[in-house]
Design a protein around this nucleic acid. Sequence first.
DNA 1: AGAAGTGGTAAGAAAATATTACCATGCAAA
DNA 2: TTTGCATGGTAATATTTTCTTACCACTTCT
Lengths: 106, 106
Amino acid sequence: MSEREKIAGRLKEARVLSGLSQAQAATKMGLQRPAITEIEAANRKVSAEELLQFADLYKVNTSWLLGEEVLDGDETEEFQFAARELSKLKPEDIKKVFDILKILPK
Amino acid sequence: MSEREKIAGRLKEARVLSGLSQAQAATKMGLQRPAITEIEAANRKVSAEELLQFADLYKVNTSWLLGEEVLDGDETEEFQFAARELSKLKPEDIKKVFDILKILPK
DNA sequence: AGAAGTGGTAAGAAAATATTACCATGCAAA
DNA sequence: TTTGCATGGTAATATTTTCTTACCACTTCT
């Protein structure tokens, strides 16, 4: 399954879940309805700008639309904690932390 | 400043920071060099799939390329920097950093 | 100076997208 | 049932975008 098909599927899923018809989505996106049909059939590319628009319209993350790994709640908590703690360090010290990480057993 | 110009600027910034010439980036992306030039000049759109490819090649987040806030909440430069570095890691490695930081004195 | 690497740009060819229209299906009201 | 309407798929061709190739200017080496 191609990236395009995966993105297409998520765009359709997001649209349906947001309760919009292709025609309504097209209007809000400033596109013709067939464009939505083709996008959801993976026959038409989606530009980076359109991706942002779609994410806004359908109320989803661009990362999710792109099929990237989404951190679950637990990991998000830890991620934010780690980032917050790291941000208290100087950039050079942050580098040191990452260097330590590289030495740690896998 | 349009979304396209913002994305274009970040793509250029990411490429330069990753130490690649336009020609090298083009080869890795499966594009002709002028395409990179035009993309970075905001004269050519970037597809969602290309965005994923660029993020992989330049080792940055698609969210960052799209100009989205990496995390809501903290806004400091240091936090953004730390978060960006963290986001390059695998989830399991983020956990390791998290564990290290928990041990550190406050 | 010459050679090589870089990035910008132009022109015609090729490909993708837009526009408009028509079709089939499903569904609810008359 | 039949009519009307909403929905989504698709075809034809006009339009726009992108690709390809080439040439240019500028810089950095030797």
